[in-house]
Design a protein around this nucleic acid. Structure first.
Lengths: 345, 345
DNA sequence: ATGAAAGCGCTAACAT
DNA sequence: ATGTTAGCGCTTTCAT
């Protein structure tokens, strides 16, 4: 009898030992339910027995199987995060924060990145199969059909940094419109006369809200937006948009408000590379998000900081209430942003 | 009898309908195993029946419960990614790639971010509880105790961008040392005479390997490394390190090789901000990774591109073999990097 | 405080 | 090709 040791064979059974509660129970002569109770702090079990179980568990390398528990309890402890546009540093930064806070809450983070040009709906079937306790979306939108599917399964959905017209889901946003107003007022006060806006995507609420506020703030001061050009939420898009704005022969813009920071960096890059305009003397540039690079000395970008930590806490809090969005009055929760003054405006 | 409708009550049962295979089976008068087979393409079932099952499933919003399947099959379809230092853009970029490729492979990504100053070991208990099929680590290190725990449970572990001395785990790296040599040769050929290195963390293999290659390449050309300063893998660290190197009165360095791009950006920021030295005329700067920002015109950084896609494919491939690391000869897999010439050197 | 037994939803072995 | 049955590992009544 020859053991199969060829390299294509499956790993041998030896070592593939998954210690179960039953193993512990047998060794200690107790019931599996008792083992289970030892790991549930709210359970009635004698301190002595619990100690013996815990220490044997440590010795044998036992941990309760979360998958089995999930099946039993109908809650997986997993929160899905559906994220688009990882190329915008704002999202990785938010992701990091999100992960840390979920770990503190003893929740797991199942990540889905929506490919460029893809829809969040595409990944939802996979998300739902894993019986996640909640879904946080920072990508584009969800079809109402999908959000109904979630609601039907009792899975709460929160949009972060997106305002959506769907009573089945929550939204957590920065007060985008108000911050738009604030930026306008700041620029006017700094004697800027000709303002432009660089939009991300006019189909996305954040861009629309920030623009609306900006225009309102300008109007309140007797100014009118000179131009609204598209930057597609990317560095290259911002760079190109600046090219449009500052092409020779164009009327001179002396302030640019960008719908996010990464486009603002593109604008600064363009100005330094292709013009002799001085920032902030000739042109003021303001961004939105306050990503890390905004504070690098070579950018030194004046921007609106989104309170990412608060937004995430709020989102996680909503998810933990167990409510359904429709059952609470304010489906949209707004958190105040903060204007961070640096050298670019 | 009054129904509790207070706002703190749990959501009503209505709508919390989780459709199960049994529901389908009853409605169609078939066995649950038949329903199961309809969703397994390799199963013997009549096309007709399969069609009826699938379409009823669509109608009722049924999807097989992945948690239940995981429990049954002893494989969860989940791959854990343990990631540190999300502040270095290299990792979010790799993460995005990783997520997309796992989705293509119909695997889920459970993400764990190791907090600054934390150890990968801290999150491992949580990882193991979820019966993940495999673990990919891009953070510091794993204690041998932890890697043994994984091995004992038959869970393969791959380190990405880390070379570790542990026969229980795989490593997938760029050929760091060779690329260090190549950078040295390039700089020498460009008539650089006084080279410095900015290290990330001398406890981490990538820094050590890149430095070793760099010194070897210099030595082969009769040069010696002037300085090795610490940059802690951060922008600020690179900025500060440049401060050390280019403080007044120091011997003049005319080339700096940084263990990663983000530190190189800090160096460029410092040079522009605090010196009148010209890049690349007075000082050449070379990075490592080729993060997105490296190609921004204001940085235009010459760097070594890591073949992230290939590295990930390799890692996923290793995990799919089902082998244990010890059972294969080359526990360390190296993928060739590529020197990307831009304006900074 | 502890044990016994049922069941979460699914798949795989066996039977037909 | 389809039905029956057992069981994945856990938690949770219900007994005691």
């Amino acid at each position: 009898m020859v053991r199969n040791t060829s390299p294509t064979a499956n790993p041998p059974a030896i070592g593939r030992v998954r210690v179960t509660a039953k193993d512990l129970a047998v060794r200690l002569g107790v019931a599996t339910s008792t083992v289970s109770r030892a790991f549930d702090s709210g359970s009635r079990i004698s301190d002595d027995l619990r100690q013996r179980i815990i220490s044997l568990a440590d010795e044998m390398g036992y941990r309760p199987n979360a998958i089995a528990r999930s099946l039993n309890q109908q809650r997986s402890g997993i929160v899905a995060l559906v994220m688009g546009d990882m190329a915008n540093p704002f999202y990785p930064e938010a992701l990091e924060e999100f992960s840390l806070r979920l770990q503190q809450a003893h929740r797991q983070l199942l990540l889905f990145v929506v490919p460029k040009g893809g829809e969040a709906d595409d990944v939802m079937p996979q998300v739902l199969q894993y019986q996640v306790d909640a879904i946080v979306v920072t990508a584009a939108k969800l079809s109402s059909r999908t959000s109904e599917l979630c609601a039907r399964q009792g899975i709460p959905v929160v949009f972060m940094n997106r305002r959506v017209d769907d009573p089945m889901v929550w939204s957590v946003c920065c007060n985008n419109e108000s911050m738009g107003v604030m930026v306008a007022e700041y620029l006017v006060k700094k004697d800027r006369k000709v303002c432009a806006f660089i939009a991300g995507d006019m189909n996305i609420s954040t861009t629309v809200d920030r623009l609306r506020g900006f225009e309102r703030g300008l109007a309140a001061n007797g100014q009118k937006l000179l131009a609204n050009v598209q930057g597609g939420y990317t560095y290259d898009g911002g760079f190109a948009a600046a090219g449009e704005l500052f092409a020779k022969g164009k009327p001179l813009v002396d302030a640019v408000f960008c719908a996010n920071d990464i486009m603002a960096l593109g604008v600064l890059g363009y100005l330094r590379q292709n013009t002799s305009l001085d920032v902030p003397k000739d042109v003021a540039v303001v961004g939105f998000d306050d990503i890390r690079a905004a504070s690098y000395p070579e950018y030194n970008l004046t921007t609106v900081r989104q309170p990412v930590g608060e937004m995430i806490d709020l989102a996680i809090g909503l998810l933990r209430t167990g409510h359904r969005p429709g059952s609470i009055h304010a489906v949209l929760q707004e958190v105040p942003g903060q204007l961070i003054l640096r050298g670019s405006a």
